[in-house]
């Protein structure tokens, strides 16, 4: 356990509250008009649904780092998207307070034909920074990303490493109270990964709340002080990290 490096927060407030969240996905196999007409009346056959989440309820207090884990298809990414406000719930609700930044995909919204500089401003704005703030952080973003002179090159010419490095650099400058992270920490080469981890640790020291979705048990062990394990859309474990990793292993076995 690494709680030693956590700041001591007196009486931490709840910042994320989910109440009996359920989400049902409906899969339609016919998207085109022709198929809809041809299959009209038999449409039940062409749709199937399943519950991605059932009655998920938990509270997260300020300053904690929570790992949201589970096997593929357990609903963890869906839950993260619901917390991030990208997907609506079918029943229940999620409430949160403070500024939220979602790192669900690095460089979502990068336009390949625009230069790195233009994309920094665009992406900063998408993540909630004003133009003025982005301008203030700009040098620091470029420095963190190690892009250097390529900042005025179109991003379609970037290597995939440069692309995600720039995206990560923008994202960590957003100054969120709550950070939602979906499997995006393993970016760039080893030194850059270490830099990312340092940044995350710094976030933790600042008392920011972080929700990780990850498949990597070592990473969860390293970063989280609480683990929520989902299996088939339900919470099967919610507690300290060590027990969470064990619970996760159990869900793999079925």
């Amino acid at each position: 356990m690494n709680t030693a490096m956590r700041p001591d927060i007196q009486n931490p407030p709840v910042v994320i509250r989910t109440s009996d969240v359920s989400k049902r996905f409906i899969l339609r196999k016919d998207k085109a008009l022709k198929e809809r007409i041809v299959n009209f009346g038999r449409s039940q056959k062409h749709r199937s649904d399943f519950w991605a989440l059932r009655d998920v309820a938990f509270e997260i207090t300020a300053g904690t780092s929570v790992g949201l884990v589970g096997a593929n298809g357990s609903g963890k990414s869906t839950m993260l998207k619901i917390i991030g406000g990208i997907i609506q719930t079918d029943t229940g609700f999620v409430e949160r307070r403070g500024r939220v930044a979602a790192l669900l995909e690095l460089g979502a919204g990068f336009h390949p034909d625009l230069t790195g500089r233009e994309n920094v401003y665009l992406n900063g704005s998408i993540l909630g920074l004003s133009q003025k703030q982005t301008a203030e952080y700009f040098d620091s973003i470029v420095e963190f990303s190690e892009i250097g002179e390529f900042i005025d090159t179109q991003v379609k010419f970037y290597s995939s490493g440069m692309y995600v490095r720039l995206a990560f650099a923008i994202a960590v400058h957003v100054d969120p109270d709550i950070l939602l992270v979906d499997e995006v920490l393993a970016v760039g080469d080893e030194p850059f990964q270490a830099k990312c981890m340092n940044k995350i640790r710094e976030f933790q020291r600042d008392g920011r709340t972080i929700v990780f979705v990850s498949h990597s048990a070592p990473q969860i062990e390293d970063l989280c002080d609480r683990v929520v394990v989902l299996s088939h859309g339900r919470i099967v474990y919610d507690g300290e990290t060590e027990g969470g990793i064990a619970a996760l292993r159990r869900t793999f076995k079925g």
């Binding site: 700041p7 001591d8 927060i9 007196q10 009486n11 931490p12 407030p13 910042v15 509250r17 300020a62 300053g63 619901i82 917390i83 991030g84 406000g85 997907i87 609506q88 719930t89 609700f93 999620v94 409430e95 949160r96 307070r97 403070g98 109270d177 020291r205 600042d206 008392g207 920011r208």
Partner: peptide, 24 residues
């Protein structure tokens, strides 16, 4: 350092909760 964390927590305590998605 931990002062900053405490300040953040105190500020957040004063904020009202907001729904992640406004239901229609």
């Amino acid at each position: 350092m931990s002062n900053e964390a405490q300040r953040r927590a105190d500020r957040l305590r004063e904020l009202p909760f907001e729904r992640a998605t406004a239901s229609f």
